[in-house]
């Protein structure tokens, strides 16, 4: 489903070397992966490279059979419309209602496929998704009128409404209280069980990743220093990985 090969990306700061230095990974269809690492290690950047929003300096990026770097803009857009992305800061369209925000991907899909827009179908699907995130009464509100947790749920709804086969979540619990975090991860788990979509989550919250992602990747110093089951992180040979997994203050980090 997702194949990355020797991906290199330059740091924005010209005095520093690569922020991503030769990343290679393979994610199979239906897998659920977590991506973690210390702050500013390039996790979000890697996610954006996988969905074609950012281009690396070198390397190979292939998603669902399409080479993102060599594809035409139209082909890239098609692949992007088959992914669901939950942005760290939600990125809700602030001039549209909650309903319109969630309906947007469905409308665009119809436009891209050149089929007629079936309002009834869209309405049904959006309401179903809103019920899933428990926000149906707020359908006509504007994003600015919602709380942080509610906005996150709307963003999640927008990411999953078109039932995409590939889902990418960027820090789904950032800045949320423990109860809301648990509810969000519960929603993610239910979505996963329902559709079986390939899922990639970026999160620094290892405890929350524990129940959700059987496979974890860790990014540090531009390289993937760990790729395997979550449970084995604390016993890794790599001191960095051990320190991160245990949350120790002492160590190389």
């Amino acid at each position: 489903m997702v194949v990355l090969s020797e991906v290199r990306k330059l740091h924005l700061d010209p005095t520093k070397p690569w922020v991503l230095d030769g990343i290679s990974l393979r994610i199979k269809e239906g897998e659920t992966c977590g991506l973690c690492g210390p702050g500013a290690s390039g996790k979000s950047l890697l996610l954006k490279i996988i969905c074609g929003l950012v281009f690396p300096e070198s390397g190979h990026v292939e998603v669902r059979g399409t080479d993102l770097l060599r594809a035409s803009a139209a082909a890239r857009r098609k692949v992007q419309s088959e992914m669901g992305y939950l942005f760290q800061n939600n990125a809700l369209f602030d001039s549209a209602t909650v309903f319109e925000n969630i309906a947007f991907p469905l409308r665009q899909r119809a436009r891209l496929a050149r089929t007629n827009v079936d309002e009834h179908e869209i309405r049904e699907r959006v309401e179903e998704t809103l019920r899933g995130v428990e926000l149906l009464p707020h359908a006509q509100k504007m994003p600015s009128q919602l709380s942080g947790g509610q906005r996150k749920r709307v963003a999640l709804a927008r990411a999953v409404v078109a039932r995409p086969p590939l889902l990418l979540y960027d820090e789904p619990s950032a800045g949320l209280d423990p109860v809301t975090t648990a509810r969000i991860y519960d929603l993610l788990a239910r979505e996963k069980a329902h559709t079986g979509a390939t899922t990639l989550i970026v999160s620094s919250d290892l405890a929350a990743l524990r129940a959700f992602a059987p496979r974890v990747l860790m990014l540090y110093d531009g390289k993937l220093c760990y790729d395997g089951p979550q449970e084995d992180m604390e016993q890794s040979d790599n001191a960095v990985v051990r320190q991160f997994a245990r949350g120790d203050i002492e160590g190389p980090l």
């Binding site: 857009r77 992007q80 669901g84 800061n89 990125a91 809700l92 665009q108």
Partner: peptide
């Protein structure tokens, strides 16, 4: 606010 990125992810130019 990344809304332009969000537009791209919904398949919009």
């Amino acid at each position: 606010t990344e809304q332009v990125d969000a537009l791209q992810m919904c398949g919009v130019e």
